[in-house]
């Protein structure tokens, strides 16, 4: 049996809102360690990998592995019914047909209970090996979101060039070109404003902005985004949770 209680419903709300436009049907695999999701978008360009570690929950128990096949569009509708500050408890039996969501308002005795029917979802599980990346950058997630949104007005592609002392984002389009250059900086008073670059090899990689537009929906999950890039392989975009992460692996575009 699964019983996982979030101190605030807002965390699961944000997670679901962050991935529901990338993938619709996915298995939430619940184990004693927490809840994991892995899913690939329909165009097979973007892979979503989520871990909500058991430490995120104020109470968590899951004696046996339980798979919840969820339609995220329906899940999102139910989650929106709860208040952000409500306790949210997920409950499921060992071989469940449905998952129950219980919202408890902290300021009153109101308890709202919803159940979502589950689906049999047959998706392949991809093996992702730990890689050494050419470069790892960390920067404020909101800055990354703004840069990507701004440059997407010009082009369908975002080129990322990383050297040891700069990160350059570039977009070239029919109506014009744009670029944003960032330099590493350490902000002692506000560490979340810091920008760091670790470089093994200089990077020059290009990605589809329509996928990055979906990735940056995770911005509210973390002050910082970690981007790990190697030339000619998928980049990893990571929002860290208090325990766990939301990761997006995005396949690059290649010159014709």
């Amino acid at each position: 049996m699964l019983e996982g209680k979030f101190e605030e419903a807002s965390l699961l709300k944000k997670v679901v809102e962050s991935i529901k436009d990338s993938v619709q049907l996915c298995n939430f695999v619940c184990s004693e360690h927490g809840i994991t999701v892995q899913a690939v978008d329909d165009s097979r360009v973007l892979l979503v990998s989520l871990l909500i570690g058991n430490e995120v929950f104020s109470d968590y128990r899951c004696d046996r592995n339980i798979t919840l096949g969820v339609d995220l569009k329906s899940f999102a509708k139910i989650i929106r019914c709860g208040g952000n500050d409500d306790y949210l408890t997920l409950i499921a039996e060992d071989s469940p047909d449905s998952v129950t969501l219980v919202f408890e308002d902290k300021n009153s005795d109101r308890i709202s209970e919803y159940s979502l029917k589950l689906m049999e979802i047959d998706n392949e599980f991809l093996k992702i090996d730990d890689m050494d990346y050419d470069s790892v950058i960390k920067m404020p997630s909101i800055d990354f979101q703004k840069i990507c949104r701004d440059l997407s007005t010009l082009s369908e592609s975002l080129q990322i060039l990383i050297t040891k002392d700069s990160i350059k984002f570039m977009a070239e389009g029919e109506t014009g070109n744009g670029s944003v250059i960032l330099k590493p900086r350490t902000d002692i008073d506000k560490p979340e404003q810091s920008i760091t670059v670790k470089l093994n090899n200089a990077v020059n990689s290009t990605f589809g902005l329509k996928y990055i537009a979906d990735i940056v929906k995770g911005t509210s999950l973390s002050n910082q985004i970690v981007i790990k890039i190697s030339n000619r392989t998928p980049a990893l975009f990571e929002y860290k949770l208090q325990s766990g992460y939301l990761r997006f692996y995005l396949a690059p575009k290649f010159e014709d």
Partner: peptide
Amino acid sequence: KGKQSSIMNFFGTR
């Protein structure tokens, strides 16, 4: 501009 690659070219099924 550029050809979009697939994530499946990089990560194998388990």
